[in-house]
Write a protein that binds this DNA or RNA. Structure first.
Lengths: 126, 126
DNA sequence: CTTACATTTGCAACTAAGTTGCATTAATAA
DNA sequence: TTATTAATGCAACTTAGTTGCAAATGTAAG
């Protein structure tokens, strides 16, 4: 079930993803937006936005779900197979604009894949 | 801190990983071995075995940690960068013996990466 | 074989992420 | 403007994983 109504909560949430390729964890969003809306609402809206192909998600190395804006996804085709990068210094995680070629597999049907990279981002490399 | 003593619990746990490339989730291990040892013990032994380079772990699409045998890891070098496959039909997840070449990145320091693939395994493809 | 002592274990209580049911509130079409 | 249906808040719950501490057990030295 996707978004049907453009409510205030939806707009506030979408605003957080404006003009950025940074991925935000649910936890992060709850601390940021907790005064504007309930955490349940945050979880529910994120789920709907993902269904609609507006956001995509991945599980970080800490097991916490993160969301980021989609570039070329649709309701039917969540094909955002770019890698995600997580910085061990500042904790920031972001989408990488790099093509990943999934190894060919004869005896398995690949439906989705995600590459997660851990390291130091440009600002933390020193 | 790695394994110091070869206790009964350690042996029972290691047995589960014998002769298989299948990855087991902590939850799965707790249901299997819960009658032999406490879940805290399971968590602690798994952590130690990972420290020792005997097991390696990854977080599945469901956010649950999974463990599998290492082939060429050591205490210092946990370089098991093979992809992991998770079947959406039977739920089984396993290590894949495939090389993954991580895309070159000029402005980031890559320390670790994991490729997670979702699909149907050979038995569930039909 | 026995002792001594450090490591492991079990237990219970806790934390933190995420979910559910239900009554209330708000958006939208008529 | 109202009726209807979706969205929200709240509280209570579930589940994965963690912590502190006392009791049990493995191991090396005698």
């Amino acid at each position: 079930m996707g978004i049907i109504r453009k409510t205030e909560s939806v707009e506030i949430l979408l605003n957080e993803f404006q003009d950025t390729e940074t991925a935000l964890s649910t936890v992060e969003l709850i601390t940021r937006l907790g005064k504007f809306m309930n955490k349940t609402t945050i979880y529910r809206i994120l789920e709907k936005l993902e269904d609609d192909g507006i956001l995509h998600s991945f599980i970080g190395f800490d097991g916490v779900k993160r969301f980021a804006r989609c570039k070329s996804c649709s309701k039917s085709n969540h094909s955002d197979v770019h890698p995600h990068f997580q910085c061990i210094s500042c904790g920031k995680s972001e989408c990488l604009d790099i093509e990943v070629n999934i190894p060919d597999m004869s005896n398995r049907e690949v439906l989705f894949s995600q590459l997660l990279i851990k390291g130091k981002c440009d600002l933390c490399m020193v």
